[in-house]
């Protein structure tokens, strides 16, 4: 059922429709701006996510060194070395990017591996702890991309709905109301002329 089929016609409604159209167009502009901003944010994050391949490689290598340390010391020996590592402390706080809530990880204390006494355990620990910051950065970027991509999809749907359904609907409705109002004014004009003509004939 078209929007026009249900509309009441009056000058007040036409004014209100024009205001609504203006408001919807502004909303559409804002959503487009949000979409562009989110897209540029995603582009920025993509470069960070691209390092995943390299990071995977380095992580595998670090795991190989960890395995070597396990072989050298056994489970209990390595566990005894690992217990000396000062734990890493992180704080996660929410951050808003154009209304999208994403986590921001703040490293409050780096892990300290100074106390590890075995050389193979120290080597594995230094490789792994060196990767921790990058892993956190990557996890943060991946989560952000996921949230932003979802929001981008929703914003796109909204922009499309405004652009293809709501705004054309308003335009059609305004055109219909304008047409109806013009017809009504023409009818009024014609009726006035006819009345004048009838009165003139009656006088003659």
């Amino acid at each position: 059922m078209s929007v026009a089929g249900r509309a009441a016609v009056s000058r007040g409604i036409l004014l209100r429709l024009r205001e609504q159209l203006e408001f919807t167009k502004k909303g559409q502009e804002l959503l487009k701006m949000k979409r562009d901003h989110l897209a540029s944010e995603t582009n920025k994050l993509l470069s960070k996510v691209a390092m995943r391949g390299k990071l995977d490689g380095r992580l595998m290598q670090a795991y190989e060194h960890l395995k070597a340390a396990y072989l050298n010391l056994g489970y209990s020996g390595l566990a005894s070395q690992a217990v000396t590592v000062d734990r890493m402390q992180v704080r996660v706080r929410p951050r808003s990017i154009m209304g999208v809530i994403v986590p921001e990880v703040i490293i409050e204390k780096e892990p300290s591996i100074r106390s590890v006494s075995s050389s193979s355990a120290y080597h594995a620990a230094s490789e792994l702890s060196g990767l921790m910051n990058e892993l956190i950065e990557l996890a943060e970027a991946e989560f952000r991309i996921e949230s932003i991509a979802y929001e981008l999809m929703m914003t796109n749907r909204k922009v499309n709905a405004l652009e293809r359904v709501l705004i054309p609907g308003f335009i059609e409705l305004i055109r219909y109301v304008e047409g109806r109002l013009e017809e009504e004014s023409l009818e009024e004009f014609f009726r006035g002329k006819r009345v004048k003509q009838v009165i003139r004939r009656a006088k003659t």
């Binding site: 209990s76 566990a79 005894s80 070395q81 217990v83 000396t84 590592v85 000062d86 106390s115 006494s117």
Partner: peptide
Amino acid sequence: LKRILRAKHSQEKIEEEN
């Protein structure tokens, strides 16, 4: 003894089975 001292250095728990 080394294993115990390492754990105590980090103030971590250690069990006899370790």
